[in-house]
Structures are given as structure tokens and as C-alpha cells.
């Protein structure tokens, strides 16, 4: 296990994650995009139902991830993130118009210094609530592992592994994680 980051870094990165969630919830998409590194990568692998043979201990989650197929629910780079934002800007993305109301709750934030200077492994949990009309509400809980880097005095998210809890996603309308 790597060393925990100092309290100041921990606080700054927590604030980054909260701000990132809030900017999406407030539909400030262009500002949200600025929190992502130029080489940003998001992946959200499809979760599968696995079994261990009788007599074997449960797989760790890392072992589980190695067994998954290459299929992802999301696999975005910065260009695709930009595409998602630009699509919103047309006012013709019908699955987000009428407007979606969302609330992302971020917690369990752990920050560890990575091997490379100025780079941090960040663990967090996220619960994304989404509502659009007539009491409709979907909930998307996920565990996340980010790599956050310090560049020119600010922190940017360079990588996100987004592990949905469910194997069957509710709805086909998620524009952003």
C-alpha cells in the first residue's frame, strides 16, 4: 500500500471530485471538461456474474476485473468527452431535453501518492441519481479509481475506472457517468 497523501493534497483532490460532480449536476459542461487532462481516459467495464469453484476463496475485485470481457459501458477519451458536451450544446439531444436533473453523491475518498511525482491514486464511491419526468428516477452506484495529476498548480483527472455495481444498467440514457 502506498503512502497516504498529505492533508492539504487530500483536501484539494476531494474538492476536485466534489466540484467535478457539481459541475455536471449544474449542467456546466464546458467548465466540467476543463477538469479533465488532455490525455483523459474513462473506462466503465461491463460487470459480470462470476463464481469460484467450491473450496476456493472469493476473488478479490482486482482478480475479478482481470476476468471480464473487453466490453465497456463507457470508454471515452477527451475527444469523445468533447463530443458528448457538443451534442448537449445543440439543444437537440432528446434524451437530455427536457432537461435531466441529477445529483451525484461522492464519498469514501482516499488519496495515495503514486510512484510518479505529482500523481495520485484516488479511490471514491459515487451514487448518481437521475430524474427527468413524472417521478422517474434511476440510481447508478459505482466504485471509482482515478489517477489525478498535478499540473501547473492545479489538479486534473487523467484516468477514471468507473465500476458500476449492476450488471444490467437501468435505462439507456446516461450521457455522463
Amino acid at each position: 500500500m502506498s503512502a497516504l497523501a498529505d492533508a492539504e493534497t487530500q483536501r484539494a483532490i476531494e474538492q476536485l471530485l466534489y466540484r467535478e460532480a457539481r459541475l455536471l449536476d449544474e449542467r456546466r459542461h464546458m467548465e466540467w471538461l476543463e477538469l479533465w487532462h488532455e490525455d483523459a481516459r474513462i473506462s466503465a467495464p461491463v460487470r459480470e456474474n462470476l463464481e469460484v469453484a467450491p473450496g476456493k476463496p472469493p476473488l478479490t475485485r482486482d482478480e475479478e476485473l482481470e476476468m471480464l470481457s473487453p466490453a465497456q459501458f463507457f470508454e471515452d477519451d477527451k475527444l469523445i468527452l468533447l463530443g458528448r458536451v457538443v451534442r448537449q450544446m445543440t439543444g437537440k439531444a432528446w434524451s437530455e431535453n427536457p432537461l435531466t436533473r441529477s445529483c451525484r453523491v461522492i464519498s469514501n475518498v482516499e488519496v495515495e501518492a503514486a510512484e510518479r511525482e505529482g500523481e495520485f491514486n484516488v479511490y471514491s464511491n459515487s451514487v448518481h441519481y437521475r430524474s427527468r419526468r413524472d417521478g422517474d428516477q434511476s440510481v447508478y452506484p459505482a466504485a471509482r479509481r482515478d489517477i489525478v495529476v498535478s499540473e501547473n498548480g492545479s489538479f486534473l483527472i487523467r484516468q477514471r475506472l468507473h465500476l458500476y455495481l449492476t450488471d444490467v444498467l437501468p435505462g439507456s440514457f446516461v450521457t455522463f457517468l
Binding site: 466503465a44 465497456q72 459501458f73 463507457f74 463530443g83 439531444a93 439507456s172 440514457f173 446516461v174 450521457t175
Partner: peptide
Amino acid sequence: QVTFGPGGMLESD
């Protein structure tokens, strides 16, 4: 993945 499936931008429409 970017066009279809639950995160796909055509599938959502």
C-alpha cells in the same frame, strides 16, 4: 461503444 449501448449517443436517443 460511443454510438450504441447504454452509454452510446445514438442508443440514448
